[in-house]
Design a protein around this nucleic acid. Structure first.
Lengths: 256, 256
DNA sequence: CGAGCATGGTGTGACGAGCACACGAAGTCA
DNA sequence: TGACTTCGTGTGCTCGTCACACCATGCTCG
């Protein structure tokens, strides 16, 4: 039937996956195996296949590059500035979510030389608006916290302790973070993320909030607001430790 | 340099422009001059040119099809279900905004046979999920409120008084409306839209809110909240009528 | 020119949400 | 058994939100 054959921009998906790791807000990155930006860290993602929905492309790319599956995303938006990809005009649809790092089994595959969680604080700031970083090849090595919490491969970095991301991925992460904070303000919307394992204590959940929002919360107010939302319920067990055991909670409607 | 030549989905932009007209929330539509969905109403929009940013594509398509320029948009998101466009896999990045209809001079151009504001209430409901309407050719005529508030061309319709939109545009409009409501709840974010002309009375602005939010607001609370936000200031003049003159306001920081 | 009419403009009190605040309870460990 | 650590809870204040009714002002029309 009808079909225009104008030159087309390419379409990719990129995924921002946040998590908590030792009181840090971390994001899942892959080290690129191919040009452009070969050897630099980037968001998992890739080209959309013909007749593939955006959500499916997102899930597929994530699975191919990191081994993760069964993750639900929120769409963040489309990024389409010409020049954001040295291969040519490329429009990226970004997704984001939050998962529990401990339950994620990572496996670098496909175009990824490596997969690791990186604290947001270790990433170089977004460049002054307009310009995008050109792919670089040579840089001094730098240790970062990687998979498993142990020091990982040295990686490219330009400033003390910071990693430059490929493409405009730093900007995408910034926007995802803003969006995440926005969601967390409303408990109902926050419940769509896996902020904590299926059973959790109040303090565990509160710590996630504090790390993401970047300011401390009052224990009692936090508890009261969350309970008022009727989204969680006490689970039978409690968590032990070198102190008084804590009540475990779980999301309402979750399978026992 | 590097360049993949996989088959690519096409990329379009679509624009949802809301406005007020005689106590109705209206949206700007164009009647398609070309297949697919020839003769049906659709959102203004079209293909993204090579090396054109999404915002620029959006502004260009809007200008080409409706004559409108100098409009600022917010991005709504990307719609990429395969099957949403009978021409083949097409990803549309949607934008939306709100403008003052009275100050908009419309001119159908390019692929548009006609341009008109349509009350949201006159549009057919979104179809049951999953399916998308196939292009239809023959249908019974139906009068709708068009450009200028007068009855416009008869148009395609399937149910009494409702118009079926092309593609998944009805769904896009629904999402834009939800997003619009969301923004209006926060005066700061609402200020990025042209809800009212540069000088306006409290009641005029309030009426816009009531129409969009679809419920009445208390006059005093509305006034108080808006003034508390320090976003508007009284202008010198006042508006006359067959009653007590009303104080005019304008957005702070607006040119005198 | 005065009465009626339509809209403009204003203050208060009730209520609930959010916040800051301190202390006893229940375990572990030495 | 005492010290320590984290858990769990109730109250009072403040502030924002909401509902609510009346007089003011200018126009029109008889």
């Amino acid at each position: 039937m009808y079909r225009y054959e104008y030159p087309r921009p390419a379409v990719t998906v990129d995924v921002v996956i946040f998590s908590m790791r030792a009181d840090d807000l971390v994001v899942l990155l892959v080290k690129r195996k191919l040009a452009p930006y070969k050897g630099q860290w980037a968001l998992p993602g890739g080209f959309v296949n013909p007749n593939e929905s955006l959500d499916r492309a997102c899930a597929r790319e994530l699975e191919e590059e990191t081994g993760l599956s069964n993750v639900r995303f929120q769409q963040l938006g489309a990024f389409g500035d010409p020049g954001r990809d040295p291969r040519g005009h490329t429009i990226s649809v970004a997704f984001f979510t939050f998962i529990v790092a401990e339950s994620a089994i990572l496996r670098a595959g496909d175009d990824a030389a490596e997969v690791a969680w990186h604290p947001l604080a270790n990433l170089a700031k977004e460049l002054p608006t307009g310009t995008h970083p050109a792919p670089v090849r040579r840089t001094k090595a730098r240790a970062v916290v990687g998979k498993g919490g142990k020091p990982a491969r040295p990686s490219r970095a330009t400033k003390k302790g910071t990693i430059d991301l490929a493409f405009d991925h730093r900007r995408i992460i910034d926007m995802a973070q803003m969006c995440l904070v926005e969601r967390l303000r409303d408990p109902t919307r926050a419940a769509s993320f896996d902020l904590v394992p299926s059973h959790f204590t109040m303090s565990e959940l509160q710590r996630v909030y504090e790390v993401v929002l970047q300011h401390p919360l009052d224990k009692r107010n936090f508890r009261a607001k969350l309970l008022a939302a009727h989204l969680i319920e006490p689970a039978s067990a409690s968590r032990r430790g070198p102190h008084r055991p804590a009540q475990l909670y779980r999301w309402k409607g979750a399978a026992r």
